[in-house]
């Protein structure tokens, strides 16, 4: 992603890839017998066609795009990746382990991951906040919104 042109081209390719994916699955939509001209595939086909057109437009205009290097935006991909994995694990364990435990652990770890480099993580403070937020949210949902969040291992309240 060094130049605007490259970025625009990559985007064009992504659009075409999405279009291809969507087109294939549109043709896999089952049709009912006697479906007339307008059926469950009509609108998806129209959208797929639009995506192809947009992808091509994007690639065509990208040819004339700026080739000057973009400002270097350093993305801290390590932290992004750690956060993404943490979120996936959190959601995966949300139901089996239960809201309280997973949320506490998620918050605690997420606070640590996102702590600015020039600041030391304050574990005690993070722990307390994680605990308080989880308990507070659970109680509010359970007792005032009547929504039972996954209880998992803690089934006693």
């Amino acid at each position: 992603m060094k130049t605007q042109k490259m970025q625009d081209q990559i985007f064009g390719v992504i659009v075409l890839a999405v279009a291809a994916f969507y087109t294939v699955f549109t043709f896999l939509i089952p049709l009912k017998e006697g479906s007339d001209i307008i059926n469950a595939r009509t609108v998806p086909l129209l959208l797929a066609a639009l995506m192809w057109v947009l992808g091509i437009c994007q690639l065509v205009t990208a040819r004339k795009a700026d080739t000057k290097p973009l400002d270097k935006e350093a993305r801290d991909l390590r932290t992004v990746l750690k956060t993404a994995v943490l979120i996936v694990v959190y959601i995966a364990l949300f139901e089996p382990v239960g809201f309280l435990i997973t949320t506490m652990v998620y918050l605690f770890l997420q606070f640590i991951f996102l702590t600015p480099a020039d600041k030391k993580p304050n574990y005690l403070f993070y722990g307390i906040i994680s605990l308080v937020v989880s308990l507070f949210v659970y109680t509010i949902f359970r007792y005032s919104l009547d929504i039972i969040l996954p209880q998992g291992l803690i089934t006693f309240f």
């Binding site: 350093a74 993305r75 801290d76 991909l77 932290t79 992004v80 750690k82 956060t83 993404a84 991951f113 996102l114 702590t115 600015p116 480099a117 020039d118």
Partner: peptide, 11 residues
């Protein structure tokens, strides 16, 4: 997710 990009650099 976006905040994760810059969190470490943030003062």
């Amino acid at each position: 997710i976006k905040i994760a990009e810059v969190a470490k650099r943030e003062k």
